[in-house]
Write a protein that binds this DNA or RNA. Sequence first.
DNA 1: CATCTGCAAACTGTCAACAGTCTGAAGTCA
DNA 2: TGACTTCAGACTGTTGACAGTTTGCAGATG
Lengths: 226, 226
Amino acid sequence: MDSNGTRNGPPRTSLADYVLEVLRERLATGVLQPGDHLAEPELAEDLQVSRGPVREALLTLQAEGQIEIRRHRGAFVSVLTSDDVEEVHTLREAIEVLAAERAATRLTAEHIARFDDILEAMKVTSGSVQPQEAVRLDLSFHDVIYEAADHLRLARVWQSIRSQVSFFLYTRNVNFPDFPTVGFPEHKELRDALCSGDPLRARQATADHLSGAYTRLSQLDLPPRT
Amino acid sequence: MDSNGTRNGPPRTSLADYVLEVLRERLATGVLQPGDHLAEPELAEDLQVSRGPVREALLTLQAEGQIEIRRHRGAFVSVLTSDDVEEVHTLREAIEVLAAERAATRLTAEHIARFDDILEAMKVTSGSVQPQEAVRLDLSFHDVIYEAADHLRLARVWQSIRSQVSFFLYTRNVNFPDFPTVGFPEHKELRDALCSGDPLRARQATADHLSGAYTRLSQLDLPPRT
DNA sequence: CATCTGCAAACTGTCAACAGTCTGAAGTCA
DNA sequence: TGACTTCAGACTGTTGACAGTTTGCAGATG
């Protein structure tokens, strides 16, 4: 929650990073909803910093596409339409297939151990797990793939759509109560493909995994359009 | 060159956007070299604005990975290693193949006309063209693909690596004097594949086009490593 | 001559204040 | 009653100033 200590004395990290961290947390947990208005003075007062660092954090989030800044109107949490669902999915498939291909030949024992830890947690919690926790495990699994891919720019793109993917996964879990049972086997198969060391198999498995998730999600017309 | 007029009176675009535009131009044309230090007061004096907008522009460039900001040390133009060449290429292939696939079924007559205008310019200037102008035409061609793809997030990723691609293209052109002759036929074929309306053919043509450019570039060990 | 210490200049991180712009509501008129 | 105008409030874009940190050089010391 507080990576810097208690915010006394000289901060080890810049205040802008602190604000950014708080806002990322609020976006991922749903405290901030799409369409919400982010007023600089309000945030500054809330976090006990001046408007400068707040502006910097907002700029970074805009570059990632998580918020939109309109001139003289302020920052708004991006509203996700059905077109956005498609954009995020297609972009994710494009980059994650590449990440998997690279990870297949770069996996270390430590990465595999992390896979297995997450899979174990998925297996154990099957049947009785909250949607939010399932999302956390799911994303953690894919984080490991990007880490193993050892590709800075790829990781940056993933970071920029990660919280939006989180939002979609959460929506899916809430609407498809079978989520605790499908998570484990799907990721287990993905793990095996990655560990096989065969880049093409890893690509294919990732494509299958993601298209499955997308078809489930696109069935419900919950996300508003344009 | 100056999208706002002459910078008098109220700017139609924000000053931060103006600074960003100037810096992008300087990065793409090589006025700013990798490793160069960007001092805020100096830039502010140079562009006749205060440090605020300069900081905002630097923040955006950092989010795109074009510069690195080190605490209390300032901003430095990213140094591109051979690993970076590979990263940029693999990421570009991943997203541009998707862009081409989408563009194939979304091309309008206006897009095709733009393709043909650029191709005409490539053909006419064959034999006597400066490396810099060849790069400009090349990038313009691919800009149209991303525009036709109608995918905001894809366009954003492209924007984030565009000036780095520009740098690589320029390096290639300087070292391979045959660049005026290969540009036209390669892009002509790409145009035909896109206009065929066949997504798979567009994908394949794009992959071929990019891998050709990469193999040429990776032959020279000019970019420093680590 | 080499190494260490101390200082000064420059720069970054942060803050408070000013001016211009947009929004929404109160007030006016047909 | 309904639509248009006006105005006050709030917020953003921008600026200039202050404090802390880093760097590089000059001088002292072995």
